[in-house]
Design a protein around this nucleic acid. Structure first.
Lengths: 166, 166
DNA sequence: AAGTTTCGCTACCTCAGGTTTCGAAACCTA
DNA sequence: TAGGTTTCGAAACCTGAGGTAGCGAAACTT
């Protein structure tokens, strides 16, 4: 599977060194085959992340339970091998690539944003702020240290965010 | 000045399109001159950011005043033309470049971290978490939308962070 | 079995980061 | 003011990565 090859290549080589050619080699296919299915490297990574994240688990009845489970779910996914690197990598590329930013926003962020709006009954801008805080914090830690956030700090993030969105 | 040329080039072209050659042209010097002074593009950007940020203004006597002024100061700087793009850009590059990450962490983050530890009397890991939340949130907004965070959301960020670090 | 689609391979283009070389200008130092 | 040293600019070049084109060989369809 291409997605598995992508994540494992990103995991061992980092985002920039995980070239499309290497990913293709790891998947046992040709580079051109990848470009036949995805227009750019960024689009490949986004689809790969969509596959890795899957749907948000909206567990728990109370708002507090929903939010804390969402935070822990995001932290857990980002901590999986390759996922955090890939996420931070595309995110970075998107900074200077408006088209990729659009893909990121519409295909990756929007579904989760809508699901959270629905589950929490909060307006769009509040949920966007929530996502900025949670994902931004997790990615900043990943980007600065190269390691995902440890459990104690994920706990702190949950406690930081809970009283604010009450 | 090279720094001014760097920021204005990044501002109009974005991080990736702001090549060293273009920055040099904007500064009226040759590309080789830049590489004589800075080993890599990342190092140039970091020095540029250090120049743009300057020292943290540790205003206010109470912890709450110190923290809220620090958050607003960071948000204001990141909102300056070119600064946010440059910051998000190097940050992204650092994801897959351990050497650049080391430069970012030691030259850019550490001074502010130490100043905050000193001013707030908090242990290192708490201040690091504080920086993750504040800078991560600001950069995530910048990266997702291409625009700096509006004042209302900066206010929200201050209110989110204040009760937690009490 | 013939036609159509898909895939792999090779070669190629573009562009950005970074290096090398060399000549000219500026800057001491006397 | 003359000679030597350092600094800078210009141009050419190298490497590596994203992305494309063309062709032959499979595989799938009818």
């Amino acid at each position: 599977m291409v997605f598995a090859a992508t994540l494992s290549t990103v995991h061992e080589l980092g985002y920039a060194r995980a070239t499309v050619e290497r990913i293709a080699a790891a998947a046992g296919i040709a580079k051109t085959t990848i470009y036949r299915r995805w227009p750019t490297k960024g689009a490949l990574i986004v689809d790969c992340l969509l596959d890795a994240f899957g749907p948000v688990p909206m567990e728990g009845g109370s708002r507090a339970e929903i939010m804390s489970s969402a935070v822990r779910w995001a932290a857990g996914k980002i901590a999986e091998p390759g996922v955090g690197d890939a996420f931070a990598g595309v995110f970075s590329d998107g900074v200077s690539d408006p088209e990729l930013r659009e893909i990121l926003s519409s295909r990756l962020q929007d579904p989760y944003r809508l699901a959270l709006q629905d589950a929490l009954g909060e307006p769009e801008h509040r949920v966007l702020f929530f996502i900025d805080v949670v994902v931004g914090t997790l990615l900043h830690r990943m980007g600065m240290t190269g390691e995902p956030m440890v459990d104690d700090d994920v706990d702190a993030l949950v406690e930081l965010v809970l009283p604010f969105f009450r």
